[in-house]
Design a protein around this nucleic acid. Structure first.
Lengths: 203, 203
DNA sequence: GGTGTATCATGAACGTCGTTCAATTAATTA
DNA sequence: TAATTAATTGAACGACGTTCATGATACACC
């Protein structure tokens, strides 16, 4: 038989991931490219393409870690039974995370999923995991039998907040609102929650 | 004195803009680059840099026209006094526009404003113009003296919907919701409007 | 018309990027 | 040790945005 791989594919991917994270932390997003990752790993660019289909796959891994780290940061938030209060606490942890890990965070918004291709399965899982945090906070707004309504509300709230993060990440937020990021995010949550309560009491 | 320009800077920018639009329409976003624009204009790449600081400035012009076209499409929407109905009609025009001019629309979400630089002034104006459409629709929800509350509500609704468009443009919407774009957008508007009414009746 | 000059227009060339692939290296088996 | 098989390499490719020495051109003045 032939030559055995020095590292398994998974090992190599982990090393590449660490290298990418180091570059992002030390040099910023604009320095994240194949040659920089290869140099930091101590291998050639060709090896990167042995491990990954392309740079996008590595970026997806980095974004996966960002989502995990976000979950870790947000899961500290308490659930008191008051959605308003809980959401505000969650939001502040969120904003702290965005501020502290600005580059990684922005990378999430650079990613462009190819038209034809399905997003990777673990992407769905990580988002679902984050959704559970919102779900348990919003639970008191709904009756126990309104499972689907609750899930629906979580999705919409997520998307609304994504509007804020997205505009902010691309520098467009000042075009839309003169208020700072925190203010906009808090207003968003308050209004949305009021809407949920109103629709819930309607039926 | 020296040589007079063959065209004024504004003329040239208009020609470049038309060339860019033609490329987007006929070849798609991925073919929009300096060389393609220059070739279609019948000039050299250097001339592009005589007219613009860089390609981003041309992209900004294209996006400006997209915002104008969007305003034209949406300003047909009637104002009946029922915000729910009016918003749904507006939303459908919106979705029609997004479908018909998908490439131009996506370009709006590719743009990344440089950190240090202020967005161009006409950007604020065009967004403000679009805001007036939402403002007159949402007016019945507020008392005549609640000018600032109305403006605030318009901004938040805009940002919420931006969350939907942004996810959709990057292919991330299926990760968050299994529902089609229209459904998500309509739900968003309904919930937000319920929230506005609830908060308005509180004070 | 000729000359000088200020200005515009040119496109080859540069640096960077993602990506490819023939050649090289090395681990395993016979 | 030699053959076999596969991982690793890095020069090279094409596309990109951008630059700048060079050439071309229209005007003012004589």
């Amino acid at each position: 038989m032939g030559r055995r791989p020095r590292h398994s594919k998974e090992d190599f991917q982990a090393i590449a991931l660490a290298a990418a994270q180091a570059i992002i932390a030390e040099e910023g997003l604009q320095s994240l490219n194949v040659r920089a990752v290869a140099a930091r790993m101590g291998c050639s660019v060709g090896t990167i393409y042995n491990i990954f289909e392309g740079i996008e796959e590595l970026v997806a891994l980095v974004n996966g870690e960002t989502l995990d780290a976000l979950y870790d940061a947000l899961s500290q938030a308490p659930v008191t039974g008051s959605p308003e209060r809980d959401l505000h606490v969650l939001l502040d942890l969120y904003l702290k995370f965005v501020t502290e890990r600005k580059s990684s965070w922005n990378l999430l918004f650079e990613e462009r999923l190819p038209e034809a291709k399905e997003p990777p399965a673990w992407y769905f899982e990580k988002i679902a995991q984050l959704f559970t945090l919102l779900t348990r906070i919003l639970k008191p707004v709904f009756r126990p039998d309104q499972k689907e309504e609750l899930a629906h509300a979580v999705r919409l709230l997520w998307i609304s907040l994504h509007g804020v993060w997205s505009l902010n990440a691309r520098g467009h937020l000042p075009i839309v609102s003169g208020d700072p990021l925190e203010t906009v995010a808090h207003s968003m949550v308050d209004t949305y929650l009021a809407g949920l309560r109103a629709r819930a009491s309607d039926g």
